[in-house]
Design a protein around this nucleic acid. Structure first.
Length: 387
DNA sequence: TCTGGGGTCCTAGGACCC
DNA sequence: TCTGGGGTCCTAGGACCC
């Protein structure tokens, strides 16, 4: 339910307990997509820029992916519906996203980070934890200053950096460093640094948990620290206990482990909510084909297939089916996706009486394809010609 | 004037087995 | 004739993150 350290892509679940002298430099690129675009169009440097589907571009639905700080001053923020952003900031320059560019630049950033790191652990396209050895806080700060300067000079990108001896504290510090700053939190200052912050500053506390805590009169991390651990554990489970430790200045983090993807999915939102089965079925088939291509490229097998519908009222329903063993190739994916979608449509959607907004096809329980270890396979193997 | 696309983790109930 | 506890798998839903 509550997730203290959910990575987005390419990162491990939890970073390492620091060996003596180990510091985390948590690097967060400011307004990343916008900054990538401004790099190529310097005349927009201080302008109100929004990366997202330009209003009136034909994409009927969409959200702001990234907004420049000038645009944010009008109230625009990431994930805001594009139509609302257009009203708040009518003179914005809109730029359609170019994800290939953002991926490429992200790789360039990682290369720079690697020069200063024992290890670089990416968390999504625009964040990374740089694990670095430094004698003390001053040494770690010097390294952060050099890093930030190199990213600015060589890549023309602004970055904020949080520095501490735990990953989660470094991340929280990087948020406080925005834009383009550096915040260093030595280990003996963690509790004092966190105490005045709103509970939302902690990754894993979102709107729901914030509301729940507020209903108990808790608004700051310092107030969290003052609670009895059992109180927090009762309300928030295992996350509550970790939260309590963190609030008191003792972040608990597991070791960095090698990380493999657990699922891959493909989604499509229709321009208008669908009340007919045929276009829904066609979309499911296309998504299954796309997804199958992704799994092929990544040499992955899958052990379960899921389909989810987001309905016109924005609620979501999903169906997952376990295949009883790892499969590869498109046929099981197509077949199961079609069957599950039909079931959702007929049972949960009452044959179109609940129009569908978004369809999503997912492959789960991924495992690398293995050529040479058949004995160890725990599921049915597909042989040539079996389809 | 409404809400993308891609992910992770946790919880909980029921089935099933020993 | 009635009732254990433990473990695992499956499925659905919820919260959160970039």
């Amino acid at each position: 339910m509550l997730d203290p350290s959910s990575p987005t892509s390419g990162g491990p679940l939890a970073p390492a307990p620091s060996a003596p002298g180990t510091w985390f430099l948590y690097v967060d690129l400011d307004a990343y997509y916008v900054s990538c675009e401004v790099r190529d169009r310097p005349e927009l440097a201080d302008a109100r820029v929004i990366v997202g589907p330009p209003p009136g571009s034909g994409r009927a639905r969409g959200v702001v992916l990234s907004a420049s700080y000038a645009a944010r001053s009008t109230g625009v923020h990431s994930a805001m519906p594009a139509a609302i952003a257009a009203r708040l900031c009518p003179d914005a320059t809109w730029i359609p996203p170019d994800f290939a560019k953002y991926e490429r630049v992200s790789g360039e950033v990682r290369a720079v980070l690697a020069r200063h790191a024992v290890r670089v652990v990416p968390y999504g396209i625009d964040e990374a934890a740089v694990v670095s050895d430094a004698p003390d806080a001053a040494g770690a700060r010097d390294r952060a200053i050099r890093l930030q300067e190199e990213i600015r000079r060589e890549l023309r990108l602004p970055a904020s950096i949080g520095v501490s001896t735990s990953r989660v504290v470094a991340k929280i510090a990087s948020d406080r460093a925005k834009p383009a700053g550096i915040v260093v939190v030595p280990p003996d200052e963690v509790a004092a640094f966190l105490a005045p912050l709103p509970v939302r500053a902690i990754p894993g506390i979102g709107p729901k948990t914030e509301h729940l805590l507020r209903s108990k009169g808790i608004e700051t991390v310092g107030q969290l620290a003052a609670l009895r651990p059992s109180e927090l554990g009762r309300t928030l489970g295992s996350f509550g206990r970790e939260l309590h430790q963190l609030a008191r200045g003792h972040p608990t983090e597991g070791p960095i482990e090698s990380w493999e993807p657990h699922s891959r999915s493909a989604d499509r939102t229709f321009d208008v909510d669908m009340e007919d089965w045929d276009p829904v079925a066609a979309a499911v088939a296309e998504l299954a084909t796309d997804l199958s291509g992704v799994l092929d490229r990544e040499k992955l097998r899958y052990g379960a297939v899921g389909v989810a519908f987001r309905w016109a009222d924005f609620s979501r329903t999903q169906r997952i089916h376990s295949l009883g063993g790892a499969q590869e190739g498109p046929s099981a994916l197509h077949q199961e996706a079609a069957r599950l979608a039909r079931e959702l449509w007929e049972v949960d959607g009452a044959h179109g009486r609940r129009p569908v907004r978004t369809v999503s096809v997912r492959a789960e329980r991924l495992a690398p394809r293995r050529q040479q270890q058949r004995r160890l396979d725990d599921g049915p193997e597909r042989r040539p010609g079996e389809d």
